[in-house]
Amino acid sequence: MTVHIMLFGQLADITGVDKITIENCLDTDSMVKSLQNTYPALIQSTFVIAVDKKIISSNTLLTDQCTVALLPPFSGG
């Protein structure tokens, strides 16, 4: 099962890339844990998670080829 992750703003600065593909990830909680293991600075980061373009507020099951977006808040103007 393949999940496509998109990272925005300062999250992409932390990972160094704006797109990550991961395999065999069941739900959003385990996806976040796996990302935080690879990029510990993400533990400190605030972001919302959207699965297939819709914001979720609790752990959500992922499906093959779904896209998960991690969106941080911006303050600038």
Binding site: V48, P72, G76, G77
Partner: peptide, 26 residues
């Protein structure tokens, strides 16, 4: 607050003075 319920911790998100911003983007 449906998008971001509470603010990020101070210092986590940089503003334009710290992170910079492309003028034409604004």
């Amino acid at each position: 607050r449906d998008l971001f319920p509470t603010p990020p911790i101070d210092g986590e998100v940089l503003n334009c003075a710290e992170a910079g911003v492309l003028g034409v983007l604004t």
